[in-house]
Amino acid sequence: MTLRSATSAPRSNGNTLAESLTELWRYRELLLILVQRDLKARYKNSALGFIWSLVNPLVQVLTITFAIEFMLGSDSKNYSAYVLCAMLPWLFFSTGIMDASPSLLFYYNLIRRTYFPRELVPLSFVCANLIHFLLSTSVFLVYLLVLPLVGHLQGHPPDFPILPTAFLLPIPILGLVLLVTGISLFVSVWTLHFEDMRYIADSLLKVMYWLVPVMYFPEMIKEKIPGPKGDLIYNLYMLNPLSGLLTAFRKLTLQPEIMPGSRVPTQPMGATEWGFLAIALLTSTLIVLLGLRYFNTQKWKLAERA
């Protein structure tokens, strides 16, 4: 007979971090099923399911590029690639958090009636979004490789915008996964207690969208505000882990770019940028550890929501 003891010490609020990770590993099949279910629900209702979720950011990026290049006038060759390169990880960040936020409510019926590690619920939505993000990023990278070849066939010299350092992308991807997971663990619990949290998160993400380098180049800050004051603001801006990660995504993938409305090219991935990436990785690790700890203190109270 398989024995599974559920001894609980008096007044124990939950398990240690190591115990909860072991428990997660034991329930890995359940994670697989939850992820499968989410992906299926997302792509079920249309034959072009995955294609549509690629087309949406693409249309958004093309519209923006069109607007900027025609209205501001620009010498950038690959502005849309630059925007898309940060847009895809941004969408993983924002959609991941927005999906995870009501996730405990979504599975509340199960939480009230059966035991399983509750972390799996927000994690499954993060994983489903990660798979989606990896797929769209792969399509994007293939596009960057194929497009110059098409130009080459038409007689132009091949000019690859993609850098070999794109092989280092798993580093910022890891950071982003940690960051999204950590925030999701907090937000999912808060949304269960206060359903308004979902709308608050949505608003905060809309603000955050403009506080990180998706639509513009952070070097513009230094250009607009010269001197030590600009440097300070730039440094503070880059200490946001999401800024550090999105910048790494761009600079590892793409050649330096002439910024719109200026003749100055962006900086390549240098020592400073690696420094900011390292800080972002550390901050993200800290956030995920805090998130797991917070979830552990809360998880036994989830089913007691009156």
């Binding site: 007979m1 398989t2 024995l3 599974r4 003891s5 559920a6 001894t7 609980s8 010490a9 008096p10 007044r11 124990s12 609020n13 939950g14 939480i111 009230r112 009636r113 059966t114 035991y115 036994w300 089913a303 007691e304």
Partner: peptide
């Protein structure tokens, strides 16, 4: 069924549980 944690006291369950709550 491990839906809640006891406030105090001990509870040992030495087997897998199928709950129909």
């Amino acid at each position: 069924g491990r839906i809640y944690l006891p406030t105090c006291g001990t509870l040992e369950v030495r087997g897998r549980v199928a709950p129909l709550l």
